[in-house]
Structure formats: structure tokens, C-alpha cells
Write a protein that binds this DNA or RNA. Structure first.
Lengths: 149, 149
DNA sequence: TGACAAAGTTAGGTTAGTCTAATATTATTA
DNA sequence: TAATAATATTAGACTAACCTAACTTTGTCA
């Protein structure tokens, strides 16, 4: 199912918070995203309806398995782009973070996979002391790519 | 002044159309963006209010000088990102086009300048037959960058 | 030159995402 | 354990971006 960028942001926020604190409440999400409580209540209602979240009346919020899968995909995209901005373009961490938020939504997996492969190739290349023109430039022409984190 | 991504899209569309056809009407914009005429009328009204467009009642649409400046900046960002996706990641033209649309809004000029410099460095490097490790990797650590198109 | 087609506008409705104010529930603690 | 604080929800309003239907203006050509 397709989510708006905003809804994806909420899912991602909940995922990130889940790894930092034991239970995630509406107010945690509101604080993190800089919006008011009713805004979160309504966003969470939408995500519950789509089956991405569980929450009892007045209770804490948890990701369903499909919600978690979605959140992981979004978070991966975010990390990949941020890594590119820091490692390849040399941006400061905080700028990279905010720029990644603007670029991360709705990209195809082809684009993200190619970006990952590219980053890894550049980093490997940088760490070795060799001229790695071949590895580096052949990647542009390969149409199917695999990756691991 | 800060524009929404949608408003930026309209400005960019008008700019692109201006270079293809002699006069740009509401219906040209609507056709190009795949929306209805009233939607364009109201978007154009908003952009006129902000001083980016001129249009007489029932007339054609033209960019003001500030509108053109804005549009050029947006279009440059688009071209830069698209070039990266095609030349560096090797995406197909049509995918690169649509992915660029998703990534182009609200990026800092620092990010865009660094991206431009990076693309040019890679392309130069690819065209020369030398090991250009130095040029390539030192760019990551330079904090101020210039560029030309 | 007047009728018809094309282009543009207005009116009014929908949805998503936000807010404030008021209310309800849950948790803490004196 | 009752009062208070913290948390969550509801109600109601606003804006941006879209739509359809109806209307107005402009342009064309028979």
C-alpha cells in the first residue's frame, strides 16, 4: 500500500523511537516531530487503519509486522542517502540528516540499490591504495545490482 | 520567500514550457502537469500574489524576474540530480527524470554545489585515462565549493 | 459577423495535515 | 486514596491542493 511522505515520516519516527525507548507514546512522537498531540493522534489513527500500527485506546503505539517492514525500508533509504551526503559529498552530519529527509521518499529500489553499491565502491576504492578505475566505472553500466548492508 | 514543493513544480513547469512554446496558457500547464484547469488557475493565483507570475484576466502566463530566478534555481537542481542519476548511477533517462522530481525540492545550495562538483570530478576522471585518486577524494574534505554549469 | 469551440474563472466540495480548546483517561504522589 | 499531573482524545477550524459543474470570456471561421 502506498503512503504519503508524512505518514512515512511518522512510521520512521516510531521505528527510531522504538529502538531508543521501551514504550512509544503519542507524546513521544509529537515531541520528536515537533507537532501537537492531536496531530499525532490522527496520523496514528490513519496508520492503524492501514494495518501498520497497533494501539489500544489511550495506550502505547507499536508497529505491526508490516508496519515494521515498511519502516525499515524507509529508514534504510534515509541511512543510504545520509551516508552518501556525508561520505561522498562531505556534508556535516546535521545538514546531511535534514537533507536526507527531503530526498528519501518514494524512490525506487533500483535507485537505492545503485546508490548503495556506488557508495560501497567509492569507500572501498578510497580505502585501498590502488587505482580502482575499473571497479569504479563499470558499475555505472551494470543494470542489475545486489547489495548488503 | 519560501514556496511549497507543489508551487515550485508549477514554476518549473512554466519555465520549461516557456522555452518550448511562445505563449503559456493555463491549459498548457494543466496538460503538462496532468491536473484540471481550476487547479492551475488557483496555483497561478497564488504565484501571482507572491510576485512570481504575471497574468491578465483570461490571459497568458509569464514569469516575473523573481519568478524566473526562482524557476531557474529549481530547474538547475532538477538537472543536477538527474545528471547524477544518469551519469553516475546509470539510471535510464525516464526513471532518472521521475526520481529527480522526488528529490529536487528544498535542498541547500551547499548540497547542490557539492553534488555538481562531484559529478564534474567523476566525469573528468572517467574521461581521462589516469588514476585521479587525488582530485577525486580530496573534494570530500573541501568545505567551500564553486561550480559552473 | 455571429455562432461555436476553446480557454479561463468561479463556486463549492473533498482530503490530508495541521492547529487550539475542551474533555477524558491514566499515572503519580502526598 | 484523592488530588494533581501527565497523557490521550474529541470537536471544530484552517490551509493547500485537488476535483466537478456551471459560467464567462476570447478566438475562429463559415
Amino acid at each position: 500500500m502506498k503512503l504519503s511522505a508524512k505518514k512515512e515520516d511518522y512510521l520512521e519516527t516510531i521505528y527510531r523511537l522504538s529502538s531508543e525507548i521501551d514504550t512509544v507514546g503519542i507524546s513521544d512522537i509529537a515531541r520528536e516531530r515537533g507537532v501537537t498531540l492531536p496531530t499525532v493522534t490522527s496520523a496514528v489513527a490513519g496508520l492503524k487503519e492501514k494495518g501498520y500500527l497497533n494501539q489500544r485506546y489511550y495506550g502505547k503505539v507499536t508497529l505491526t509486522s508490516s508496519g515494521k517492514a515498511k519502516a525499515v525500508a524507509i529508514y534504510e533509504a534515509h541511512k543510504t542517502i545520509k551516508k552518501f551526503l556525508i561520505e561522498i559529498l562531505g556534508l556535516q552530519e546535521n545538514l546531511a540528516e535534514s537533507e536526507a529527509c527531503k530526498m528519501e521518499h518514494g524512490l525506487s529500489s533500483e535507485t537505492l540499490n545503485r546508490l548503495k553499491t556506488f557508495i560501497n565502491t567509492v569507500i572501498d576504492c578510497r580505502e585501498s591504495k590502488n587505482d580502482c578505475r575499473t571497479q569504479f566505472f563499470t558499475l555505472v553500466n551494470s543494470s542489475k545490482m545486489t547489495y548488503d548492508d
